[in-house]
Amino acid sequence: MTVLREIANGVHVLRHPVLDVNATLVVGGEAALVVDTLSSARQAEDLLAAVRRVTGLPLVVVNTHHHFDHVFGNVMFAGAAIWAHEEAAALVGPALRERAVLAFPDLADELACTTPTPATELVRSAAEVELGDRTVQLRHFGRGHSIGDLVAIVPDADLLIAGDLVEQSGPPQFDDAYPLDWPDTVAGLLALLTADSQVVPGHGAVTDRRFVRAQHEQLADLAWLIREGDADGAPAERVAAKSAFPQEIALPAVRRGYLHLNQP
């Protein structure tokens, strides 16, 4: 049985075994917020059942970004307002499902039965979701893991839901990322965190400011290597080998960085 774990007053997290992705429930006095809806309708059905074991309140949904493992469960939340950054919402559709099937063939059957459902409420830079006796702030600090990263801040719980801007169970992923922008975006998150803050990453265990700061340093070092390598005309492979991240992770980041630096 899928179970949500309470990590703060009225804040519950499901760490799903498929892709180790997190979904978060924030319960207010009049409504409850679900942040990210997992990879498929089947997974989201279990998530929704777990949510309903905690609360019967009307639901609101937030997508932290457009990647399928965070949004394809949207279809199970019919009638709920779904919030996302405007760039993220525009990328949720059949083409995204096709790419997901190619990348994760083991999930092909689940994905075939899932209708990609984009957000209905669009955020450009900031918005607030009222849950009755608590307000959740939605903020876009810039590009990073994707073009449309959105974080959810629960001030009364000193908690931030970071999506894949922060990765705990593995290194950051750069396939369609913005490695030169990512450090500044995470710096915006750090400015909000206290020594006692909890941070829900996109994947892995709930973490804290110290972890986010360490990952920010790694991202900043990589961005510096990319800029230096581009200026020197160094091969991407040589630059990636200098990174703190594994070669197979850093190489796509360097190539993306080179691409962005040399765009007209």
Rank of each mutant, 00 (worst) to 15 (best):
L59M: 13
D164F: 10
A223G: 10
H70G: 12
Q173P: 00
A234C: 10
A119C: 04
L150P: 02
L159E: 02
G79V: 11
V92D: 03
W83D: 13
N262T: 11
A177V: 11
H16A: 12
R52E: 09
E6K: 00
L47W: 06
G170I: 05
L57E: 10
V21W: 00
D175L: 14
A157G: 02
H216R: 11
L111P: 00
L180F: 13
G233M: 06
V101M: 08
P201S: 04
H70M: 14
D175E: 14
A78I: 01
A84P: 08
E167C: 14
G93T: 00
A205E: 15
A108E: 10
V199E: 10
V21E: 11
T37R: 10
H145V: 06
P179Q: 06
L59S: 09
G73M: 07
T115G: 05
G144I: 09
P252D: 08
N262M: 08
V60C: 06
A195I: 11
P246C: 10
V11G: 03
G163M: 14
G229K: 00
L107P: 02
R238A: 15
D133V: 03
L122N: 05
L4S: 11
L14K: 01
P58Q: 04
V26E: 13
I161F: 15
L165G: 04
E130S: 07
L150N: 04
L138A: 05
D20A: 11
L192P: 02
V212N: 01
A100P: 02
I226W: 11
R53Y: 03
G28S: 13
T115P: 06
I7V: 15
Q215W: 05
E248R: 11
A214C: 07
V199A: 06
A112R: 07
L96M: 05
L225D: 07
A234L: 15
Q173R: 14
E86F: 10
V199M: 10
R213G: 07
Q173C: 13
G73Q: 04
A152D: 09
G29D: 13
E130C: 02
D133Y: 01
F72G: 01
R42W: 05
E87N: 08
D230G: 06
P58Y: 09
R99A: 08
T117Y: 01
A81N: 12
A8W: 01
W224S: 14
V92A: 04
R139H: 09
H65V: 12
L222C: 13
P155D: 00
D69T: 10
L47H: 06
G93F: 02
L138Y: 05
D176F: 15
V3D: 13
Q168P: 02
P171M: 08
L33Q: 08
D109Q: 12
V35W: 12
L96G: 01
E167Q: 14
P155A: 01
R15M: 12
V21H: 02
P235Y: 11
